[in-house]
Design a protein around this nucleic acid. Structure first.
Length: 529
RNA sequence: UGCGCCGUGGAGCAGCGGUUAGCUCGCCAGGCUCAUAACCUGGAGGUCGUAGGUUCGAUCCCUACCGGCGCAACCA
């Protein structure tokens, strides 16, 4: 059984998750679920990045100690991820002891390899924030601290430890050349290669005078800089420094799923760190695009930002619609490798056309006919050709195509393909065979059509399983399909091959003899603000 | 400034050397009634940002320009 280790970026806990962070988790989740279906032993890791100077600041504002604060935030993040059915196997907080201990061990290894030296860090220091400001921040704020415009910035020089990143230039370039799939999608690769070729500088990896964070083992007056420690979550959660056997089995990661803004850390700094410590490199880094917000009133496309006040809380969408609707929108409308946009209007349109009018309605018309004409029991089902609805389409080939699209994180393309090759043909099949007329003239023929439609539900259930786990399960449980194969065992292969059942029974929940609507329509206009 | 991305019918996207330039939404006309006023069929609507170039042939390759946007070492 193949192992598959997939990670997402760990998030800063100074604010709640928004639809952009959720986009990443959903994309990774679809991959993890798909790999499990295909038989891999999946380890799906997520977590929070807690060793930042903003944490004690924020905690103090709330009158809390840092640790209870980050624990509470970690709980809130996980609540959101669970509500979205993100199937993570582990959630690491970088304030946990397992992370601290392993981090120190790692930085010591890099130190022992001779890649860490002491030098002077110079920069604009704000006494209000108690931190250095980047040149960009200072420039954009007209020479002042953006948070404390009245406090003067001081030029401070401080002794810090530096990592010899520049020494890894050639080895990094060599690695990109030998592993063309290391950075994905392709468009991000050029950017990184260019960056590494031209301006790879050594980086300061410690800071002085912070209580919160991880102490540098060879100089306890210094704290490990957040980026150096954050990246290490991927190995500390895999057992580095605590469980060598497990680590050897789990590492390297098969793919790091991250945002396009931090590809440089994952494709340059991180591999160099691992090389220095003598550890294997991750196989793939996937830099997904961003979600932008379309301003409902002006039509402007904006970055999600607190200052613009256009962030959307995932919980708001989940509670008002459903987690399935949320997942469907982002997976089908936003190409994972590229950018996408969000507006309530488009959300409602996507929901109504894709979920209510197609999937939900189809489910409803199929079950209603089975109940109405046959009392929900289709006997002798194994005697009919249940694949007439496919019109002889090459399903094994379609499965290969879908497998390859999903493997490349091209979910929107995969869903479009499923829609066109599987969902649309079912509606057409009903129109062409007219089972509602056959019910009055030829019951045997009618039953044959319904057996086909039941088979359609089984196929659709399997194909949607990585994307819409709840809907998929509902489809599968609409009939007694578990008699031929347990839900936990289905794979894409099983969507291509029919599994006859002698007596098909409707097992879906009904009220008043009718199946409950899966996706009640949204009135366009409701909550579009 | 450096690097990168994008500009295709009203809106959102696909196509990346030869296709009647596809798809979704919207619009118009028919059909059907099992279904969540859903579903099916057909139609109107595009000189594929602009100007050159390469080629037997370009939406697709090259160059320049115009317009929009992203990243540039802690805003996902």
């Amino acid at each position: 059984m193949a192992r598959f280790f997939i990670t997402t970026a760990i998030d800063y806990p100074n604010s709640r998750p928004h639809i952009g962070t959720a986009f990443e988790k959903i994309g990774a989740d679809a991959q993890a679920r798909f790999r499990r279906m295909e038989g891999d032993q999946v380890f799906f890791l997520m977590g929070n990045d807690e060793n930042t100077i903003k944490v004690p600041q924020k905690a103090r504002e709330l009158g809390l100690e840092p640790k209870p604060y980050v624990d509470e935030m970690a709980r809130q993040f996980q609540d959101v991820w669970r509500a979205l059915d993100i199937s993570f196997d582990d959630f690491i907080q970088t304030s946990e002891p397992r992370h601290h201990a392993a981090c120190q061990r790692f930085i010591q290894a890099v130190f022992d390899a001779g890649d860490i030296y002491k030098s002077v860090y110079k920069g604009h220091y704000c006494n209000g924030c108690e931190t250095f400001k980047t040149d960009k921040e200072v420039e954009e704020s007209g020479g002042r601290c953006p948070n404390h415009p009245n406090a003067p910035l001081v030029w401070v020089e401080e002794d810090n430890f530096f990592f010899k990143l520049s020494a890894y230039r050639d080895r990094l370039l060599d690695h990109y050349a030998r592993n063309p799939d290391f950075i994905q999608p392709e468009s991000r690769k050029n950017e990184i290669v260019n960056l590494v070729e031209s301006e790879l500088k050594d980086v300061a990896i410690t800071r002085k005078g912070f209580e919160w964070g991880i102490k540098t083992p060879f100089d306890p007056s210094q704290t490990i800089y957040v980026w150096f420690d954050a990246l290490l979550n991927y190995i500390t959660a895999a057992g580095y420094g605590s469980d060598p056997d497990r680590f050897a089995q789990v590492w390297p990661a098969d793919v790091h799923v991250i945002g396009k803004d931090i590809t440089r850390f994952h494709c340059a700094l991180w591999p160099a760190m691992l090389m220095s410590a003598g550890l294997p490199l991750p196989r793939r880094v996937f830099g997904h695009g961003f979600v932008y917000r379309k301003n409902e009133a002006t039509g402007e496309i904006q970055k999600l930002s607190k200052s613009l006040g256009n962030v959307v809380d995932p919980m708001e969408l989940i509670e008002r619609f459903s987690s399935e609707a949320f997942r469907y929108y982002f997976l089908s409308q936003c190409p994972f490798g590229g950018d996408g946009e969000f507006s309530f209007e488009r959300f409602a349109e996507t929901y109504n056309s894709g979920l209510a009018n197609n999937l939900g309605n189809l489910y409803s018309r199929i079950l209603t006919m089975c109940l109405k004409y046959f009392g929900g029991v289709l006997d002798g089902a194994d005697a009919v050709d249940a694949r007439a609805w496919t019109k002889g389409a090459d399903f094994p080939a379609l499965m290969d195509e879908l497998r390859s699209l999903i493997g490349a994180f091209e979910y929107s393309a995969a869903l479009q393909r499923i829609g066109r090759e599987v969902v649309d043909p079912a509606n057409r099949y009903i129109q062409e065979t007219e089972p509602f007329k056959l019910a009055k003239t030829d019951l045997a023929a009618c039953k044959a059509v319904l057996v086909n439609l039941a088979e359609w539900l089984r196929v659709a259930a399997i194909l949607f399983k990585p994307f819409l786990p709840r809907t998929a399960l509902t489809f599968y449980q609409a009939f007694n399909f578990e008699e031929s194969q347990p839900w936990t065992e289905v794979s894409y292969r099983d969507a291509a091959a029919h599994r006859p059942i002698t007596v098909l029974r409707v097992t879906a929940p009904t009220t008043g003899g009718k199946p409950a609507p899966l996706f009640p329509k949204i009135e366009i206009g409701i909550g579009t603000g």
